[in-house]
């Protein structure tokens, strides 16, 4: 294992300090916690947004704290859900009197820890609502199982719910728009290489030179199946077809797409995927309004990518395009 770290036990602590030191205009670290909160708190009377999860997914979630997105992000150990006391700190920091929305990725650990935190916050008199993102179509959905995972599509929830919260909407309204995004967003990812959790020192799986893992989560866990490496276009097409059939995109739709690198994939390759996503949309007659291409939700140094489709309506599109000013996502620069 080769990593740019000091002691492996200190990785998360030092990285959180680093985020706060690198982006002091955006975020501050709440002392003695793993919470990054806005450097300049939101106006009073507006709904606060809290998200979080294990570390190792940077820029998620601390990179999305700022105007138009989150109010606080709570980090766990690498790939480990944060603990309830930390989430509670995040809720407190995000609460400006109008309640707090928790945006949770659907992993048993995240859901349970955020649930406990919510109970604690409610006991303190803070109004808390929560939504669970489950955009990963690789996983079978069923009432009798854990359900689908939440992966990169989560960032669309941050963006759109964050934009609405900034305008002074109520907790119920912000929650409703987050749920609308969740019902319209689907993702799927693959890995060409595994990643190594610093504390473990060995990769979570091994792949032959001609193999990839299809349908991975974001924690270095194995995917749903092992496939042989294919050309980028074929790979993208099979994933897009799966996303669109899951979204029931039978007729031309208005879409946003995210091409998300898993941490070790160069932008050169992401751009090749972006090209295919645009061509595929054109071929299907879809109106692809926005592409986000870059690293939004990563798995340490894993090589691979995920594709996300969001089916837009007027309202979601307008909120998606609203300004945001965070370390990792900025849009709406004013200029002549």
């Amino acid at each position: 294992m080769k990593k740019v770290v000091n002691r492996v036990e200190d990785v998360v602590d030092e990285a959180l300090d680093g985020m706060a030191l690198a982006f002091p205009a955006y975020v501050r670290r709440i002392p003695n916690t793993n919470v990054l909160a806005r450097a300049v708190p939101k106006k009073g009377g507006r709904v606060g947004l809290v998200s979080g999860g294990g570390s190792g997914h940077e820029p998620a979630h601390g990179g999305y704290v700022g105007y138009g997105m989150l109010d606080a992000a709570v980090a766990g150990e690498v790939f480990t859900s944060p603990t309830p006391d930390q989430v509670l700190e995040g809720i407190r920091a995000a609460n400006h009197g109008a309640g707090v929305l928790l945006i949770v990725k659907n992993y048993t650990g995240d859901v349970m820890n955020f649930d406990i935190a919510r109970e604690l916050a409610e006991a303190e008199g803070i109004e808390v609502a929560s939504v669970t993102v489950d955009d990963d179509v690789a996983v079978q959905d069923s009432l009798y199982t854990t359900g689908r995972r939440g992966i990169a599509g989560t960032i669309y929830v941050h963006k759109i719910a964050g934009a609405l919260a900034e305008r002074g909407a109520s907790l119920a309204e912000v929650k409703a728009v987050a749920e609308s995004v969740i019902s319209r967003v689907r993702s799927m990812g693959f890995a060409l290489t595994p990643c190594t959790v610093p504390a473990n020192g060995t990769p979570t799986f091994t792949l032959e030179e001609n193999e990839l893992e299809m349908g991975i989560g974001i924690h270095g866990e194995p995917g749903i199946q092992r496939e042989s490496v294919r050309q980028a276009d074929e790979l993208a097409e099979s994933m897009l077809d799966r996303l669109s059939s899951d979204l029931d995109l039978n007729s031309p739709a208005r879409l946003a797409a995210m091409i998300n690198g898993m941490g070790g994939t160069p932008m050169l390759e992401l751009a090749i995927l972006a090209r295919k996503v645009a061509h595929w949309s054109q071929d299907k007659g879809h109106d692809l309004r926005r592409i986000w291409m870059g690293e939004y939700m990563t798995s340490l140094e894993m090589q691979g990518a995920s594709l996300t489709l969001l089916s837009l309506d007027d309202r979601l599109q307008e909120l998606l395009d609203a300004p945001s000013d965070t370390p990792a996502l900025r849009q709406g620069v004013a200029h002549d």
Binding site: G54, T83, P84, M112
Partner: peptide, 15 residues
Amino acid sequence: LLSTVGGASGALWGS
């Protein structure tokens, strides 16, 4: 355990 384990097992053992 709630505040140090994290993950699914931390929430379950702790609570």
